[in-house]
C-alpha cells in the first residue's frame, strides 16, 4: 500500500516532471501564458498519460523490445486522438478554448518518458498511479508558471481582473518571459535544496544533466524483457 502511495505522490513534488526531471519543456513554455490554458493542457495531458501508461504496461510483455518505441508512440497518438474526438463531441466549450493544444500532447516527452521509464517495467495499477501523479505534477507546475505569467503580464488570473489598472507587460506573454519565470522557479528549487543540504551538513551538488543520470535508454533490448 505504501509503495502505491509513493508512486502517486512522487510526481507531485519529489520527481515533478517540469521542475525536477526537466521534461516537457516545449509545452511548458508554450502553453503557460495563462492559468486557464495551463490547467486545460495539464488535465488533458493527465488523461492521456494515465491511459497510455495503463495500456503500455498491459502490452509490455507482448511487444518485442526493438519496436517498443514505435508501439508506444502509436498507443499515445491513439489516446490523444480519442481525447480530441470525445472533447469535440461532448465538451464543445472546452474544445473551443483548448482545441489547438491537444495535438501537442503527442510530442510531449513526459508521456513517452513515463512509458519507457516506468510503465514498461511495472504493472498496470502502479503505472496508472504513476501516470496520474506525474500528470497532476505537470498540471500544478504549469499552473504555477501560467498564473505568475498571466498576473505579471496583465494583472489577471484565470482571465479575471485581480488588480485593476495593472500596466500591460507583454514580455511575460512572450516565450522570453516564459524562460525568465521558469528560471526563477528553478533557482528557487535549487535554493531550497541547498539550504536543506546545508542543514544536514552536506555540500549541495547540482545534478549533472547528462546521459549518465538518465536510465531511459541505457539498458539494451534483451535486458529490457527479462
Amino acid at each position: 500500500m505504501k509503495s502505491y502511495l509513493k508512486e502517486f505522490v512522487k510526481g507531485l513534488w519529489q520527481e515533478n516532471p517540469v521542475l525536477v526531471l526537466m521534461l516537457g519543456m516545449c509545452p511548458t513554455l508554450a502553453v503557460s501564458s495563462s492559468a486557464k490554458n495551463a490547467l486545460g493542457m495539464g488535465l488533458a495531458t493527465t488523461a492521456v498519460l494515465a491511459g497510455s501508461n495503463v495500456v503500455i504496461s498491459l502490452i509490455r510483455k507482448l511487444i518485442p523490445g526493438k519496436v517498443r518505441i514505435p508501439c508506444y508512440i502509436v498507443v499515445i497518438a491513439v489516446f490523444v486522438t480519442i481525447v480530441q474526438l470525445l472533447m469535440a463531441a461532448y465538451a464543445p466549450e472546452l474544445n473551443r478554448t483548448l482545441g489547438i493544444f491537444i495535438p501537442l500532447i503527442v510530442v510531449n516527452c513526459i508521456v513517452l518518458g513515463r512509458a519507457e521509464a516506468f510503465a514498461s517495467k511495472h504493472g498496470p495499477v502502479l503505472s496508472l498511479l504513476d501516470g496520474i501523479g506525474m500528470g497532476l505534477g505537470f498540471t500544478v507546475a504549469l499552473m504555477a508558471l501560467g498564473g505568475v505569467r498571466e498576473f505579471l503580464s496583465g494583472g489577471t488570473l484565470f482571465e479575471y481582473v485581480v488588480v485593476p489598472g495593472w500596466p500591460s507587460f507583454m514580455l511575460f506573454k512572450f516565450p522570453a518571459g516564459a524562460f525568465i519565470v521558469l528560471a526563477f522557479f528553478l533557482a528557487a528549487m535549487n535554493y531550497r535544496k541547498m539550504r536543506q543540504a546545508l542543514r544536514e551538513g552536506r555540500i549541495y551538488e547540482p545534478p549533472e544533466l547528462d546521459c549518465s543520470r538518465c536510465h531511459i535508454c541505457s539498458h539494451d533490448d534483451d535486458e529490457h524483457h527479462k
Binding site: 502490452i59 511487444i63 474526438l85
Partner: peptide, 16 residues
Amino acid sequence: SLGLVCAIGCAALVFV
C-alpha cells in the same frame, strides 16, 4: 507486432 498495435489502434479510432 507493430502491425498489430497499429491495426488495433486504428480499429479503436474508427469505433470512436
